[in-house]
Simulated scan of single mutants.
Amino acid sequence: MAYQVILPAAGLGKRMRAGKNKLLLELNGMPVLVHTLRVFEEDEACTGIILATHPQDDREITGLLKKYRILKVLNLVPGGDERQHSIYNALRTVKTDGIILVHDAARPFIRKGHIHRLAQKADETGAAIIGVPAKDTMKKVKDGVVVETVERASLWAVQTPQAFRISILKKAYERADQEHFLGTDDASLVERLGYPVSIVEGDYDNIKLTTPEDLYFAEAILEKRKRLEQGRQA
């Protein structure tokens, strides 16, 4: 199932406390952004990548695209003050229909098989997200006091990519823009229109790199994948 993908990459990453865009930090000798871009660059189903960036990073990012031979990036568009604004800026450059994914550029461990299942589900239903069942007991808290223990079986931790028919996502973003609504994710905008959103189960490795501690988990995931690959080749 062919698709395009939007990667919002304009965040300042304040929680990473790196003093620069966290996507430009190196992970195993290569910038986080390049790890993520390579997933889509090497996926034959991906027909194009749109990057929403901060202008101050454009020169460095352009250099990385050239250095690592990332050829599927269609263009760089200016990011906005919020992630939602960045995605809308990117979405407005898309002139075709079909399937589009929105993926956090700080999630470099998404698997190609999960991407394909997600894109296929979005083609069938119009909107699909990826996530994993909640592991922990969940409690609703108010003013520092537990109000109730939430039934866990129906709770999922939502990740990205999220996949949509382009026409549906554009309609959702246009409505949100008109009504000055800021959602928690792309699916929340689509849900406001009354469209059902399907979910595809992913895996727990698909973490978002947000804090310095996450880099330790990222190194461990890379090492695990390296060992698995060596095992398959043995």
Score class of each variant (00 low, 15 high):
residue 5 V to E: 02
residue 5 V to Q: 00
residue 6 I to R: 02
residue 6 I to F: 04
residue 7 L to S: 04
residue 8 P to A: 05
residue 10 A to N: 05
residue 10 A to Q: 07
residue 14 K to G: 09
residue 16 M to I: 03
residue 18 A to P: 06
residue 19 G to L: 02
residue 21 N to G: 08
residue 27 L to T: 10
residue 31 P to T: 14
residue 32 V to G: 13
residue 35 H to K: 09
residue 39 V to L: 13
residue 43 D to P: 08
residue 45 A to Q: 08
residue 46 C to R: 08
residue 47 T to V: 02
residue 52 A to I: 01
residue 52 A to D: 06
residue 55 P to T: 14
residue 58 D to E: 13
residue 62 T to K: 15
residue 62 T to L: 11
residue 62 T to V: 12
residue 63 G to A: 13
residue 63 G to C: 01
residue 64 L to R: 13
residue 65 L to F: 04
residue 66 K to D: 02
residue 66 K to N: 01
residue 68 Y to E: 12
residue 75 N to T: 01
residue 84 Q to C: 12
residue 86 S to A: 15
residue 88 Y to T: 09
residue 91 L to C: 07
residue 92 R to A: 08
residue 94 V to A: 01
residue 97 D to R: 09
residue 99 I to S: 05
residue 100 I to Q: 00
residue 100 I to E: 01
residue 101 L to E: 06
residue 116 H to M: 05
residue 119 A to T: 08
residue 124 E to T: 05
residue 126 G to R: 03
residue 127 A to W: 04
residue 128 A to T: 04
residue 137 T to F: 04
residue 137 T to N: 03
residue 139 K to F: 10
residue 145 V to I: 06
residue 148 E to Q: 09
residue 150 V to C: 10
residue 153 A to V: 09
residue 154 S to T: 09
residue 156 W to A: 11
residue 156 W to Y: 13
residue 161 P to D: 06
residue 163 A to E: 03
residue 163 A to T: 07
residue 165 R to F: 08
residue 166 I to G: 06
residue 166 I to D: 01
residue 169 L to Y: 11
residue 170 K to P: 00
residue 173 Y to G: 15
residue 174 E to G: 11
residue 175 R to A: 14
residue 178 Q to N: 13
residue 179 E to S: 15
residue 180 H to F: 12
residue 183 G to I: 07
residue 189 L to M: 13
residue 192 R to K: 09
residue 193 L to D: 08
residue 198 S to I: 13
residue 201 E to T: 11
residue 204 Y to C: 03
residue 206 N to W: 00
residue 210 T to L: 13
residue 210 T to W: 03
residue 211 T to Y: 05
residue 213 E to L: 13
residue 215 L to W: 14
residue 216 Y to V: 03
residue 216 Y to Q: 01
residue 217 F to H: 13
residue 218 A to G: 00
residue 219 E to L: 11
residue 224 K to E: 00
residue 225 R to I: 00
residue 226 K to H: 09
residue 229 E to C: 04
residue 230 Q to L: 15
residue 232 R to W: 14
residue 233 Q to R: 07
residue 233 Q to H: 04
